[in-house]
Simulated assay, not measured.
Amino acid sequence: MSINNRNLIVLALTYWLYFGQLGVLVPYLGIFLDGRGFSSAEIGELFAVITLARILGPGIWANVADKTGNALGVLRLGTFLTVLTFSSVFYFSGFWGLTLSFGLMMMFWTAVLPQLEVITMQAVSKSKANYGQIRLWGSVGFICLTIAVGKALDVYSTDTPVVVSIGVLACLFLITLFISAPGAASKAEAAPGHIWQYMRQRPFAVFIFASVCLQISFGAYYGFFALYLRDLGYSGQQTGLFIALGVLAEVGIFLIAGRLIRTYGVWNLLFASIALTAIRWFALGVMAESATVIFISQLVHALSFGLTHAVSVHFIHQYLPSSFHSRGQAVYISVAFGFGGALGNYMAGQQWQQGTNAFETFTTAAIFAAVGALSLLLCAKKAFDEQKNT
């Protein structure tokens, strides 16, 4: 086995653990906080506060990675500090204590994914593999741990997600020690200007705006989907299986994402995916009592998250010069997932009212997704698909 192929396997395991951790925490953090006695408004506020760390963190870490050329070092440091700070969750029980724990954890967590994406794109460029074939293992990890923790919640306490998280984060740090930088240890060639000159161009600005709207719309799903299903009478195991179904659909989409991008282009795929996401949220608000509706809506998750993410990574990688790749990924994550995610979480928390306003909350989510899709009409399709910079 060649060194690069071995590295691709290690990268696949890293994605498995990274997104496996998200599969432990994202669907079930609301249940953990509910078990600690938090109201839905407090849960939404805590989600919003800790998500704000995703605005500041990615830019800081990506700037270090791009200027030093040491994305791998930043990746390892981020995973180590994430384990260290997350451990403090066991010493706090109040709102501000847990907010501090999760906020610090998130600050260091933001160092991980942008660097992992850049290292993976560099590694696959030297092999016959493509990004989707490596990234899909993150979805597999999400599925495995979501199902396992969902089943465990039927047996053990609501503290289960944070206990499992510590083990997963420790393994994530250890696996990063085996990653090899794929010939990118030196500083990237400097590109003229500043990343702002690319951000203010219409295609990139429209892309970011649509991404923000999409992430705002995810607030209700990320914060309250598991609680919503529990209130509707679904068991923890059923909830885990529904969540895992959505991510299983992602696996399939990642396998063919490269082919879809080449065939249909960035703009078409983003528009279709975000528009269908709007329909997904509305259906959840209206007909979630039907297991069939939930089943179909979770299949759409392949587009809502999987395809939009694969297309977004592709767009950033082709649109920006190589010396701006980490910072480009950081802008995408910090603005879309950070600002958009924080606003979406806060709004959903204020609307939810212990589930009595579930319809209104998911309808608001649908409106934001629809606005995101329509905003893409402000830019020509070919502007999204041109390889403008090398």
Rank of each mutant, 00 (worst) to 15 (best):
L11P: 04
K126H: 14
E360H: 11
L100E: 02
A348S: 14
L276P: 06
A342Q: 04
G141H: 08
F108Q: 03
D34K: 12
T239W: 00
T263L: 13
R262K: 11
G78W: 06
F32V: 03
P182D: 10
V64Y: 15
S326V: 00
R230P: 01
L276R: 04
V64H: 15
Y234H: 12
W109E: 14
A342V: 04
Y221R: 01
K67N: 15
N345A: 13
L75M: 11
A71V: 02
A41D: 11
G340N: 07
N63T: 13
C379D: 08
T146Q: 05
A185I: 15
V206L: 04
Y91R: 14
T79N: 08
K67Q: 11
A310D: 02
A302K: 00
L260S: 07
R54E: 08
D66N: 06
I208W: 06
V112G: 00
Q197L: 09
L303M: 12
V331M: 15
A373E: 07
A302R: 01
M347R: 09
F204P: 00
G30Q: 07
A123H: 07
V89H: 15
V313A: 10
S312P: 02
F47W: 15
A288P: 04
A129S: 12
R230A: 11
L100T: 12
G30K: 05
Q215N: 15
R327A: 10
Y228M: 11
G372P: 07
S375A: 12
G265F: 07
G59E: 08
F108I: 06
I179P: 08
N70D: 15
K67C: 01
T146P: 07
L33M: 15
G252I: 00
Y264N: 08
A148F: 11
T120E: 04
F207H: 05
R202P: 11
T82K: 04
